[in-house]
Simulated assay, not measured.
Amino acid sequence: MQLKQKEEMGEVLNEVDFQQLKIENAQFLERIDERNQDLLQLKLTTGDTLQVLNCYKKRLQNTMVESTHLAREISVRNDILQRIELETEQVEQERAKAESINKKLRKQLSDYRVPDVLEYVQEKMEQEELEKNVRTWERKVEIVEVNVRYIWPINTK
């Protein structure tokens, strides 16, 4: 009954048509196999590419960590350098002050004149003579003051 309906509709397959369909089916299966081989090759290539990509990502991550570490290191070293420069300026100023004081003292030392021994002895003798005279005069003043206290009131009576 189905064959009759198909014959009426013209859908009955002839032997030639069936052979033609087998050939086309074989060709399509061949193309599918080729495409599957291409797909497998692409999957292998994709896997290799992903491995390389992951390797590069890991290297990039390590490089970024190292870059951050080096940036901090550079910052610390710049701070140290600035402190050293400030200390160098301070030391240079202190050195300049010490040098000027040293020059001043050297000038004083070069201008200093030590008297001759004979001159020194003579000056020392004069100083002792003057001190002796001062003591003598102070003694005389004390005597006069004592006399004035005791004698003066008597004479005024």
Rank of each mutant, 00 (worst) to 15 (best):
M1T: 08
L3H: 10
L3E: 13
L3T: 11
K6A: 11
E7T: 07
E8C: 02
M9D: 12
G10E: 01
G10Y: 01
E11R: 10
E11P: 00
E11Q: 12
V12R: 14
V12G: 05
E15P: 03
E15A: 10
V16M: 05
D17K: 15
F18W: 08
F18E: 07
Q19R: 15
Q19L: 14
Q20S: 13
I23S: 06
A26I: 02
L29Y: 01
E30F: 03
I32K: 13
I32T: 09
I32W: 05
D33T: 04
Q37K: 12
D38M: 06
D38V: 00
L39C: 05
L39E: 02
L40K: 15
L40F: 10
L42T: 00
T45N: 10
T46Y: 12
G47M: 11
T49P: 00
Q51C: 04
V52S: 01
N54F: 06
C55V: 07
C55E: 15
R59I: 13
L60G: 06
L60F: 12
Q61S: 12
V65D: 05
E66N: 09
H69E: 08
L70D: 02
A71I: 08
E73D: 03
I74M: 03
I74N: 00
S75T: 03
S75P: 00
V76W: 11
V76R: 14
R77P: 01
R77T: 06
N78M: 11
N78L: 11
N78P: 01
D79W: 10
I80M: 09
Q82W: 04
I84C: 07
E85S: 03
L86Y: 07
L86A: 09
E87G: 03
T88A: 02
T88Q: 03
Q90Y: 02
V91L: 15
E92V: 05
Q93F: 07
Q93K: 11
R95F: 10
A96S: 11
A98L: 14
E99F: 01
E99C: 03
N102E: 05
K103W: 03
K103P: 01
K104C: 00
R106H: 06
K107A: 07
Q108L: 13
L109N: 04
S110E: 04
Y112K: 13
Y112W: 13
Y112S: 07
R113I: 10
R113A: 04
D116M: 04
V117D: 08
V117L: 15
V117W: 10
E119G: 00
Q122L: 09
Q122H: 07
E123D: 10
M125L: 14
M125W: 05
M125K: 15
E131T: 01
E131R: 15
K132C: 02
V134E: 06
R135I: 04
T136D: 08
W137D: 09
R139N: 13
R139C: 08
R139T: 12
K140A: 06
K140P: 00
E142I: 03
E142D: 06
V144L: 15
V146N: 14
R149M: 02
K157N: 09
K157S: 12
